[in-house]
Amino acid sequence: MSTHEELLARIPAYALGALDGDELRELEAHLEQGCEECDRELLASTRQVESMAESVEPAAPSEMMRARLERELDKRESAGRSRAEPAARSTWRWQAAAAVLLTLAAWSLWDRSQLQQQVAQLDDERATAVASLAEVQEQLDRTQVVLARLARAGRIVSAPGARNIVLAGLESAAAAQGQTFVDPATRSAVFYASNLEPLDEDETYQLWFIADGTPVSAGIFEVENDGTATLLVDNTAALDDIQLWAVTIEPAGGVPQPTGQMVLKG
C-alpha cells in the first residue's frame, strides 16, 4: 500500500502513460475516490502533456474516418443509448403527425381500433422512411469518400515536383506492375497497381516504404475484380529518405513490420 506522497509523485508518469500494472491500478483507484491534491497535480501534468502534443504536426482526419464516426454516433442514437438527446431530427415530423392524429381522433370520437391501426401504419411508414434515409445517407457518404479520394489522387499526381516510382512484379507475381506518385511538398502519395492476383480472405496486400533502412507501413489495400488497386498514403517520409517501395502479402488487417512474401518492389 503506497503512501499519499508516493501516489502523488506517480501522477506525472500517469499523465505521460508510463505507468502499468499495480502502480497504475492503485493510482486509478485512489483518483476514483476523489483527492483534491492529486486532482490539482493531474491537471498540471495533463497540461504539460498538452504542451508537448502541440509540438507535433497536426494531421487532418480523413473523410472516411469522419463518415465512420458519424455512422457510429447514428447507431448509438438509434439504439437509444444517447443520454438526453431529443428525438432524432429525421423522426420528429412523424411523431408530431402521430400526436395530431391522436388529438383529432379523440375529438371526433373515432373508433379506438381504427386509431390504433393508423398509428401502427404511421409507425411502419416512419420505420421505412428512417431505414431509407439511413441507406441514402450511407450511399452519399461512400460517394463523397470516393470523390474526395479521386480529387486528392489528382492533386498528388499533378503536383509540381511530384515524382513517379515504378514498382516491378517479382517472381511470384511477374505480371504485376505498380506505380507510386509522391508529392514531396505534402508528403502524400498515391499508389496504383495492376495485374495483382486476388487473395484469400485471411490475407491482404500491404504497401511499405523503407526510410532510413526501416520499413514503414503505408497501408493495406484490396484488389478490384480486374486486378487493379489504388491506395492513398499520408505522412510519407521525406522523398530523399525513401530507399524503396514494396508490396507484401500479409495476414488480414496488416502487420506492423513486414513478414510475408514480397510481390512488388521499386
Binding site: A53, E54, V56, E57, P58, A59, A60, P61, V216, S217, G219, I220, V233, D234, N235, G254, P256
Partner: peptide, 15 residues
C-alpha cells in the same frame, strides 16, 4: 487534428 498528429506519431500508421 492535434490528437491525430500525436497518434500518428506514436503508432506510425495513419490507418
Amino acid at each position: 487534428p492535434l490528437m491525430l498528429g500525436v497518434l500518428t506519431r506514436m503508432l506510425r500508421r495513419r490507418d
